[in-house]
């Protein structure tokens, strides 16, 4: 056999880990944070969207919204079960926090997390009605697509595989939002939709987090990140600006 190699240098060279038995402690911690951020965001997103289902203007819209709630909850469950293999108490985890809780619409928390869960800051803001929810879902759906493309390459194979399975489901949610928005714009006045775009754009942009060169380097060494946050945000901004402008709206 070839000579022994430390897990750290294996990871730094692009190695893949496959089970909890040999992940180093700091790797475990960063991986758990990453998973908790995803699970909390999905649970909070689904819980917030659940309240909107009944506001859908027609039965097709309500079906689409209910499907999104169902699938986001299912996606949370997939990743939470991986956390469970590391010892997280999955049953308690799912209920330890009121996922539908929101701050005020004009609260200013930047990219910071709340005290008791890891949801991305954007999921702390309340939705205001159907059109607002559709806009948020489109902008955030596009952001999720960019983030999942990044995280589908993480060095923990069970999580990378979960994200690869989740990515097309989330991509479909953004498509549903885009279709919903096209329909809305036929009836709704454009100004109110634009107000929602203006409201959500900077908040979704902030969800990419800040660039911290040292941290990025550390996460790259563990194989948990590849791309700088700025770059991901720029990619999202370019892609989403094109979509928003195609709809006759202005990007934030």
């Amino acid at each position: 056999m070839p000579e022994d190699m430390s897990i750290e240098s294996y990871l730094a060279q692009g190695g893949v880990l496959t089970n909890p038995s040999n992940v180093p402690p700091r790797y475990r911690a960063e991986l758990m944070k990453l998973m908790a951020t995803f699970v909390d965001s999905e649970l909070a997103g689904a819980a917030g969207f659940a309240d909107i289902i009944n506001q859908g203007p027609g039965i097709k819209e309500r079906i689409a919204a209910a499907k999104i709630v169902l699938e986001k909850t299912d996606n949370a469950d997939r990743v939470l079960s991986i956390m469970g293999e590391f010892g997280a108490n999955t049953a308690r985890y799912a209920n330890h926090h009121p996922w539908s809780a929101r701050l005020d619409r004009d609260a200013d928390i930047g990219a910071s997390r709340s005290e008791h869960d890891m949801r991305l800051a954007v999921f702390n803001y309340p939705l205001q009605g159907w059109a607002d929810a559709v806009v948020m879902n489109l902008l955030m759906g596009r952001a999720v697509a960019v983030q999942l493309a990044e995280f589908s390459m993480v060095s923990y194979q069970p999580l990378a595989e979960a994200f690869r399975a989740i990515a097309p489901v989330e991509a479909r949610h953004a498509e549903l939002a885009e279709e919903g928005l096209i329909k809305l714009l036929e009836a709704e006045d454009k100004a109110s939709v634009q107000t929602s775009v203006d409201y959500w754009w900077p908040r979704v942009a902030a969800s990419f987090g800040s660039s911290d060169a040292d941290r990025l380097k550390a996460l790259k060494t563990l194989g948990l990140r590849r791309t700088d946050s700025q770059e991901l945000r720029a990619r999202w901004s370019a892609e989403t600006t094109a979509i928003v402008e195609k709809l006759g709206l202005t990007a934030g």
Partner: peptide, 16 residues
């Protein structure tokens, strides 16, 4: 210090 945590409720074990 950038100590790891997630749930702060003693259920997830991130902060071990």
């Amino acid at each position: 210090m950038d100590a790891p945590y997630a749930c702060k409720a003693g259920v997830c074990s991130t902060c071990r």
